[in-house]
Design a protein around this nucleic acid. Structure first.
Length: 420
RNA sequence: GUGGAGGUAGCUCAGUCGGUAGAGCUCCAGGUUGUGGCCCUGGCGGUCGCGGGUUCGAAUCCCGUCCUUCACCCCA
């Protein structure tokens, strides 16, 4: 195959796969709606500065993964690599701080990151996400986490692990980071090259290193859990308590630091062992400084993102919904092809899903198509023994036949459909 | 950006020691002159990813490249 291909790290969804995705998104719309979240749409690209300021100059996303380009007006634009910064921009730009707080929004849209593709990772991937902006209450943290858990439950995704952590806030994190850096410097010779770099750039990120020697050093390092200020401690404990009271089992994980700079206090991640190395199905956290970071007033916020591709992977193989049409109109002779077309249109106007041969097939070929389409009935036109203006309706599952006036087929089919 | 595996028909794959490309499924038609599914027969369908090299001869060996895939990094 040497023709055009989908670009590296992108993919097509064929009808069965697209139908499955529609189901997932519809479920999300229902679950999120039940929690009072409303959908918003933001542009596929933003001013580059939004992500540089919002996501953080030190993050991998900004340093090496953005699809950045200059338009003909000389503006530097970037294909959206993540969803939270644009939502915060939207919140500020449209003055949503005047709405009752918190403002609860959700989105479903593609994200773009220049990375090497692997299982569950694409250069263009779709995320379902939600953000609750404008309230510092721990109930909001618990709500977004519980809402995502509810979505996964309704989709039938089992075996998920919920990891949570608290990253502290401006009152306690700087002191902790200093303490951690000091500790790591003392054992620098035991760290891998990457971690030595992280030590200066962002010591917290040494926590998710997988090198054995580093893990040993980090196990004995001061953990943020023990260095939270009283306010962060209380917030975190409240979140954990609420999650437990609604039946979730959050596992404390001091390694869960996440690679985006904007997180404060709560961070969380759902992971599945059905996914390979990229096991995170959805995750997020609190970002109390982000709205201010993108030019708004000091405003707290919490949210998550969840990858559609990983959701469907975690759901495993599913039968395609594959609901067939109500009827397939079959022309037994070429003379009645026009009549078949007119009849099909009439049935469709009556609200029925109807198919018709469009490839000049023989009667046998048309019946074959009818069977394959999953249609409940075949409507046969052009049979010699039938009186004029009469058609024969054949049940494709059972095989029974009945002659019906052409004008009455719509009513006949509708009645059968409703009695099912 | 780094490393491993792999690219042959629309799909899943076979192809021996280097000798000029096959199967199953799908699709179309016929068997059944007017009734789908099962069965049988036939047909359509290939730049063997691409480029170069070795050779009388390359799907097969060598080099490069692109793509896929798995992992690292990091995220969803």
């Amino acid at each position: 195959m040497s023709g055009p291909r989908a670009p590296k790290g992108t993919y097509d969804l064929l009808p069965d796969e697209a139908a499955l995705r529609d189901d997932v998104v519809a479920t999300a719309a229902r679950v999120f709606g039940a929690h009072g979240y409303r959908r918003v749409v933001t542009p596929e690209f933003e001013e580059t500065g939004l992500f540089e300021r919002g996501v953080g100059e030190a993050t991998d996303i900004v340093r090496k993964e953005m699809y950045t380009f200059e338009d003909k007006g000389g503006r530097s634009l970037t294909l959206r690599p993540e969803g939270t910064a644009p939502i915060c921009r939207l919140y500020v730009e449209h003055g949503l701080h005047k709405w009752p707080q918190p403002v609860k929004l959700w989105y479903y849209c593609p994200m773009f990151r220049y990375e090497r593709p692997q299982a569950g990772r694409y250069r263009e991937h779709y995320q379902l996400g939600a953000e609750a902006i404008g309230s510092p209450a721990p109930e909001v943290d618990a709500e977004v986490i519980a809402m995502l858990a509810q979505l996964f439950a309704e989709l039938g995704i089992g075996g998920l692990r919920l990891a949570v952590n608290s990253m502290g806030d401006p009152a306690c994190r700087p002191a902790y980071v200093g303490r951690l850096r000091e500790y790591l410097r003392g054992r620098e010779d035991e760290l891998c090259a990457d971690c030595r770099e992280r030590l200066e750039l962002n010591p917290l990120r040494t926590f998710d290193c997988k090198v054995e020697s580093c893990r040993a050093v980090l196990d004995e390092a001061p953990h943020i859990d023990e260095h939270l200020c009283p306010e962060c401690r209380e917030h975190f404990d409240t979140v954990l308590g609420l999650l437990r009271r609604v039946g979730l089992e959050p596992e404390l994980d001091f390694r869960l630091v996440r690679g985006l700079d904007y997180y404060t206090r709560t961070t969380f991640e759902f992971s599945s062992d059905r996914l390979g190395a990229q096991s995170g199905v959805g995750g997020g956290g609190r970002y109390d400084g982000l709205v201010e970071q993108v030019g708004g007033p000091p405003t707290p916020g919490v949210g998550f993102g969840s990858g559609l591709e990983r959701i469907t992977l975690a759901m495993g193989a599913r039968e395609a919904p594959g609901l067939g049409p109500a009827a397939f109109v079959v022309a037994f002779t070429d003379e009645v092809r026009g009549d078949a077309f007119v009849l099909a249109q009439g049935l469709r106007r009556a609200g029925l899903a109807v198919e018709l041969d469009l490839a000049g097939r023989s009667a046998k070929g048309q019946l074959k198509q009818a069977g394959r389409s999953g249609a409940a009935y075949a409507v046969l036109l052009g049979l010699e023994e039938l009186p004029p203006e009469t058609v024969r309706v054949k049940a494709l599952a059972g095989g029974g036949e009945e002659d019906v006036p052409a004008a009455g087929v719509a009513a006949w089919l509708t009645a059968r459909k409703e009695s099912e």
